[in-house]
């Protein structure tokens, strides 16, 4: 009973201090046997892994492998058929609001409200996340500074380059300094210089945050990830480090071998 009361008190203090960074837990993301079935199709099959602060996880897999389904379940958009995920100790099914408070998310293609300015969007996000007054101003200015958005702050997002739009997307995802950051194809469609910028930023962010990067760009895994999970047919077929994967041979060949339907089944067995 005392333990429960202390837990409640801790949660209340977290809420009051907006501790989205959830410094009280070791594994900031725990995914346990996460499964999603659409009629007969098993899109994600008992996906299990955990992630600690400072880790950057490359979530690899061919199209239709179950990456987006798994990410959507972790982000709370899609209810799992079974299994669960916890973000900073908050179950995404039973405590979705607390989980989202600790989660930053950038969807695929970085969709944004194009008619808004970065300043307007970040102000809205800060308000939606419950920040007010000085706390709000401080969070917004910190995100603007980290993503170097000063010179486009009052320009409509629709008029920005793809690189700047991606930066605005990242700014809204990190504004509350989340414990877990989920990025769906963050560098897709960017030119080499813009990719380099985003990767540098991810390395900087990873100091205090656990980052999941969904991608099918293999060089991205080598460039920024400290860990790689390969998913095929809805199942995790490899949970390793990029260097261990590279030791098996060229990464694209390893990926191809792991994600062929027959190989994926063998790796799982």
């Amino acid at each position: 009973m005392v333990r429960r009361a202390l837990h409640k008190l801790l949660r209340a203090l977290m809420f009051l201090s907006h501790d989205a960074g959830c410094r009280h837990v070791e594994a900031v993301l725990e995914v346990e046997a996460l499964t999603k079935r659409f009629d007969r199709l098993v899109a994600a099959d008992r996906v299990t892994f955990s992630l600690a602060r400072g880790e950057v996880l490359g979530f690899l897999g061919p199209n239709g492998a179950g990456k987006s389904t798994t990410m959507r379940m972790i982000a709370g958009f899609l209810p799992p058929t079974s299994g669960t995920a916890r973000v900073c100790g908050h179950d995404v099914v039973t405590a979705p609001i607390a989980a989202r408070r600790a989660l930053g998310y950038l969807p695929e293609g970085a969709p944004l409200y194009g008619e808004m300015t970065p300043a307007g969007l970040l102000d809205f996000v800060a308000r939606a996340r419950g920040f007010r007054g000085a706390a709000k101003a401080s969070r917004v200015s910190r995100a603007v500074e980290r993503l170097e958005l000063e010179r486009v702050l009052h320009q409509p997002i629709d008029t920005l380059s793809k690189g700047f739009r991606r930066r605005v997307g990242l700014a809204q995802a990190i504004l509350h300094e989340p414990g877990v950051l989920i990025l769906d194809e963050p560098t897709d469609g960017l030119d080499p210089n813009q990719k380099r910028q985003v990767r540098a930023l991810l390395r900087e962010l990873s100091a205090n945050t656990a980052i999941v990067v969904s991608t099918h760009i293999l060089e991205e895994v080598e460039a920024v990830c400290s860990r790689a999970i390969v998913i095929a047919g809805g199942r995790v077929v490899v949970d390793s480090t990029p260097s261990e994967l590279a030791a098996r041979g060229p990464l694209d060949e390893v990926f191809h071998a792991l994600t062929r339907p027959s190989e994926a089944a063998a790796a799982e067995a």
Binding site: A75, F77, A98, Y105, L112, R129
Partner: peptide, 14 residues
Amino acid sequence: ARGTMLLMLAYPVE
């Protein structure tokens, strides 16, 4: 359709 609903629902709102 525009994908911005994913953005909105990623925030702590019901």
